[in-house]
Design a protein around this nucleic acid. Structure first.
Lengths: 226, 226
DNA sequence: TTTTAGAAATAGCAATACTATCATTTGTTT
DNA sequence: AAACAAATGATAGTATTGCTATTTCTAAAA
């Protein structure tokens, strides 16, 4: 017996809830592996179906297409980070300290214990870093936003921005800083690995640690200095 | 008669230099129009060929594929911003002021006078905002980086980081801030239009102006405050 | 036991992402 | 003006992708 935690995601993201069947869980598990390994562009439902000994048609019963599957994974991640922040800041009263924990949660989300066995948070974070912004950099962004497909991200940013405002009610750009912290974390983990000239992270062994220090420094300067 | 300025781009980006023929120029001009209008995903060489009364095969003689064409456009933009910064800061000696001009150049690149008649800088900036990061968020990023396909971006960031260091030699993250300024500008122009909860830009009429103010504020706090 | 929902098997189709070949036009050199 | 090469066009073809549809099988619920 094990405790089963379910992340609740907008039902518009899928045709059939993948959390509620074996095949669904295999789709999530193996799609994470394949997108992680081969990238989103060369990933498709035929290859995934082969890998899990299912058929293309079966996968299309769960997700409209691969874009929706990616959107599902990305929403999962946003909810996962939200969950991490919520439990890690639960007993913290000092806003400043909350913000530090938020930064740590964003940068090191994948280092946390796994929530469900079929989701590899490590690979998932890597997917968000490389493919995450592709979910909204599409021609259909406004329609999908209206359908609530980015709600988890907006909630996350709203929540972080509230803590920023708690730290400094005068600060004018809490939402912008909140989204920037998330994007900055992703960008610089990617840059450190692939385009090191675009960052100042030098260590190869403790990329996340260095980025956390940098982001704390940025936040301190921006929100705390007068 | 007109003065013709050519932007020099790495020859690895194309098979045949599009700047050196009529067809080449039409490819650039019309691909910008089509990617701007329909997005990169639903853009392809067959549609482009139809639009300019050419053939698919002819386009493939200029670019290996549509990804390389996008990379070409993005490199063009990076060079264009570099050019703008260079001429706008030419006679400025105060580093702090240079940095302000850099921020203005990044945010309002499209507002500047056109360099060549077949490139619509306005649409090009919009493409960079929506599709730009897709050029390096691919499985082949390391190989393409080794071939120098991101050199223009790295040069731009290096150049900006030098000015940041000039302003404050103690500042530890000049490269990270430089790339972040560029990405932040793009992100928040996009967010203001499509996902306003992720930013604090409220005006619909002067998005660029507000972002410029915000970025100047960030830079001031980060680089100038002690 | 019947019903039924989910999944597998199979087929097929339109679009995409190319590649190859050959003919034609255009521009350059002599 | 003739000869040549380079660029482009026309046409065809292939493998893969992104789906949809239909029919069969299977296992669990009523």
């Amino acid at each position: 017996m094990s405790i089963e935690i379910k992340i609740t995601l907008s039902s518009g993201l899928y045709l059939r809830n993948p959390q509620e069947s074996n095949l669904g869980k295999k789709i999530i598990e193996q799609s994470i592996n394949m997108i992680f390994t081969y990238g989103f562009e060369s990933f498709n439902f035929k290859k995934l179906a082969n890998e899990i000994n299912s058929t293309e048609a079966s996968l299309y019963r769960y997700f409209q297409n691969k874009h929706m599957l990616l959107l599902y994974l990305v929403n999962w991640y946003w909810e996962w980070v939200m969950y991490l922040i919520t439990i890690n800041t639960m007993n913290i009263t000092v806003a400043e300290q909350k913000l530090q924990i938020i930064i740590h949660s964003i940068v090191s989300a994948s280092k946390s214990n796994c929530l469900v066995d079929y989701v590899d948070e490590n690979k998932l974070q890597s997917i968000i870093i490389s493919e995450g912004t592709k979910t909204y950099h599409t021609i259909g962004v406004d329609k999908e936003n209206a359908e609530g497909f980015f709600k988890s991200y907006k909630n996350l940013v709203t929540m972080i921005s509230k803590v920023i405002t708690e730290v400094n009610p005068e600060f004018k750009y809490p939402n912008a800083l909140a989204s920037n912290l998330f994007e900055m974390s992703n960008s610089h983990i990617f840059f450190a690995q692939h385009l090191p000239k675009l960052t100042n992270v030098t260590s190869k062994v403790n990329v996340e640690g260095e980025i956390e220090v940098m982001m704390n420094y940025f936040v301190k300067k921006l929100v705390l200095s007068k």
